[in-house]
Amino acid sequence: MHEEDRQLVRTLIRGDAAAFRNFFDDYFPRLFRFILRRVNGDEESARDVVQSALIRAVRKLDTYRGEASLFTWLCQVTRNELADQVAKSVRQETYMRRLVDLEDDPQARGILESIPAGGEAEPESVRQREDLAALVHAALDYLPSKYARVLELKYMEDLSVEGIAEAMGVTAIAVQSLLARARVAFRDVGETLLPSLGGNW
């Protein structure tokens, strides 16, 4: 049971405005990325889907039981919303048109054609790299926000422990502890999402 998430949902149902803002600021970017990957990077479509899904979710918060994490539950709601929208013929046409537009776009086609065949930069390698990035991003999104943030501050921003403490408004000791827990959690999530790497990372 995900008691912390259940508690958050109970707070939301009670109408705590601060809890809502924290909830939204935490989950919206993660759901946005979750859907962005499924609509070929079309931000407007991703926005439509996630907004509708979150509206749907806040209407039925009382059905969240805590069997899965809140993020997993929201992903399911969002996935259903995407399926519904795609099922609507008008929306489907829009998605298809956007896809065709991209393929027909001379600039996009130029980029695709500029990738040399063979060697390190062959399209498959590029695609694999993009897939890897998407999987790592997904793994970070599945972590509690503070875990993802501390990992990014450490490895993307190259901040020292003191710098991270400054950025997160906690002590250096708390950062060290958080980093250790975040590494473990990332490995746990990553082993599920990145099985092809065989845990060699």
């Binding site: 970017p29 790299r129 890897l132 790592v136 991003h137 970070l140 990014e152 993307m156 590494r183 990372w201």
Partner: peptide
């Protein structure tokens, strides 16, 4: 390796 993986993935959009 974990650091390299995260760096290689780049920033989340």
């Amino acid at each position: 390796d974990l650091a390299r993986l995260i760096r290689r993935a780049g920033r989340r959009p």
